[in-house]
Each structure stands twice: as C-alpha cells, then as structure tokens.
C-alpha cells in the first residue's frame, strides 16, 4: 500500500531520515517506534506530503507522491502531532470544512462528519467552539478529521496523547476496528500500546529502520537463551551448585524470594542452545520441585532500549526483576 524507498531528508547538515526503506501492506496496523528525534514524525510528514524529501521515492497505492500529490493525498487521512484545529470553529463546522477540503461529495459530507464524530465520541460537543474543548476532546476532533471519509490509509502521530485511560482504550479499539479495510500507521512512545494494537512494529533510530516485524516475532528474536525457573524449596547454595553442574551450563544464579521459593537463572555455554530439558531432568533427579520454567524473555521495553541504544543492554538484565 505504501512503499518507501531510500528516503533521505536533510535539514541543513542534520540528517533526519537516513536512507529509510520499508513497505506497508494493505489492511494492517503498523506501529512506528523510536526515541525522540528518530525521524518518525518527519517520515510521516513526508508520506502525507507536508514536508518534501531530499531524496528517495514514496508511493501510496501505487501513486508517486511527488508526481501526483493530489491523488496520493486523497488516499491519506492524517493526524499530526499537534491536531491542526481552527479554534474559532465548532467540531461540526471543522469537519464539514475538512470534508470539503478532502473533496468528499457534498451530499455525503454531513453524514461522514456525523459518522466520524460518533466513532470518536465527540457528538455531544459538536456545537461547542474547539477553543473551549479540553485537550482530550481536541485530540479526538483531530482523530475524527483523520478518519473522515475513511481514506484507505490513515496515519496517526501519537494518537492517544492527552487522553484519559478510558478514552485511550476507546481510541485503541477504534484503531483496531479500522484494520482490514484501512491501512493504519501510528507512532507511539507507549510500547504496550503498540504491542496491543499493531500487527507489525517498525523501530526507527537515527533515521534508519532498526527493526521490523510482528510484536511476537520481535520478542522471540530478541529472547535470550537464559532460562529462568522457580523452585518450590531447597537450600540456596545447593540449588546453585546443582544447576551449575547441568551439562552445557556455564553458570547459575539463585535467590530466595520473600514467599520462601527460590528463583534461579541458568546461563548456557553457547547462547542459542535450549537447555530447558537438561535443567528439568537434573532438578527431577535432585528432587527440586520446579514450579515454573521459561526463557527469560525480554520485554518490549528492553528490546526497544537495546535496539535504540546501540546495543549496550546486555543479556544480564534479562532476569533482574526476579532475582
């Protein structure tokens, strides 16, 4: 649906987007992640035609955005970082104006405005001036503008900023409901949000694509080979000694948990090998009741930090929370 090839954007000598390439499939929700200044907003601004690019190609639905900007813009609904609202208008007037700008046929415009207001929950404030609305409502008016007329591509720059928890849940379910018929790209700092809503995650750092994949894939790929287990009871030193002797294990650590159980982490000699079975059979033999055992998965937060902080987050951190 959207193809970005070798996109470069320079502001003077500062490179905001550096040779970025990716493809967005139809009907899926994509999450843009990245630290501040990574180039997320710039990339979105370029796709929507707000900012020009220094080099590269962007096509939306097969239309080159530089060759036929009007046609490509017609296919995109955009909610920028700051909702572009006219304070002297009411939401209904604003959406009617936006409908006219987006060339929605006149007879369909009031209906599309009503629909967008219904979905974003702003019907009750439709006749109040936007300048008198709270931040959450303003954000939702902006969102209503983006989904107005249901364009095939909807791009949302931090759509849940400024909303209260209930509104966040509503907006998330709204975005989820858009998938299938619409391609959605959203940017966010909130990783749990991206994991929950998005079909695919793209992590951008220093203007480059650092990772692209589904949330599950990402967590699987980033999983460490360190095994964490919880043992019902036993003597701490003995447990450490037993686990260290498991074939293929480099070292083991154990700690007493407040409720009397023991939490242990076992590191294999060669990372990538699966030592769970060996650990289990040794524990059985030594009569150490294993309550729980799993790979120490990295949370999305840790993956994000790892990918964006140039890889100085080590595996050691994987089980800090348990020991």
């Amino acid at each position: 649906m959207i193809e970005v090839q070798n996109l470069v954007k320079k502001y003077g000598s500062h490179i905001a987007v550096n040779d970025l390439s990716f493809t967005v499939e139809k009907g899926q929700i994509y999450g843009f992640l990245g630290p501040n200044g990574a180039g997320k907003t710039t990339t979105m601004n370029i796709i929507t035609g707000y900012t020009g690019m220094t080099r590269g190609h962007v096509t939306v639905d097969g239309i080159d955005i530089t060759k036929n900007p009007t046609e490509s813009k017609r296919r995109i609904g955009y909610l920028p970082e700051t909702p572009p609202l006219y304070m002297d208008m009411t939401p209904f007037e604003y959406l009617s104006f936006a409908a006219e700008l987006k060339k929605i046929p006149e007879e369909l415009a009031p209906q599309s405005a009503e629909e967008a207001m219904e979905l974003t929950g702003i019907t009750e404030v439709k006749n109040r001036l936007i300048k008198n609305l709270s931040k959450g409502y303003r954000q939702r008016v902006g969102l209503a503008q983006a989904i107005l007329g249901f364009p095939p591509v909807i791009i949302l720059d931090e759509p849940t900023v400024g909303l209260d928890p209930k509104q966040i849940l509503e907006v998330r379910s709204l975005i989820k409901s858009l998938a299938g018929d619409h391609t959605v790209i959203l940017s966010s700092h909130i990783l749990s949000e991206v994991r929950e809503i998005c079909d695919r995650i793209m992590i951008i750092n220093h203007g480059k694509l650092a990772y692209s994949g589904t949330p599950a894939e990402l967590e699987r790929n980033m999983r460490s080979s360190c095994v964490e287990l919880i043992i019902k009871s036993g003597e701490l030193n003995a447990v450490t000694a037993v686990l260290s002797k498991v074939p293929g294990v480099e070292r083991a650590e154990a700690a007493l948990l407040p409720e009397g159980t023991i939490s242990a982490a076992v590191y294999p000699k060669d990372s990538g090998s699966d030592i769970r079975e060996a650990v289990f059979s040794v524990c059985c033999k030594e009569k150490l009741p294993v309550l729980k055992m799993d790979f120490a998965g990295m949370s999305l937060e840790q993956i994000f930090l790892k990918l964006t902080s140039d890889g100085d987050v080590e595996e050691e951190q994987c089980d800090d929370s348990h020991i």
Binding site: T70, I76, Y78, T82, P84, Y86, L101, K102
Partner: peptide
C-alpha cells in the same frame, strides 16, 4: 503558528 497548515497542505488541494 497554529500548525493548521498541516491540514491544508496534506489535503488534496494545491
């Protein structure tokens, strides 16, 4: 100043 130019420029109008 109000960033409303984003609405105008990203709309399908020249």
């Amino acid at each position: 100043h109000a960033k409303t130019d984003q609405l105008l420029i990203t709309a399908p109008v020249s």
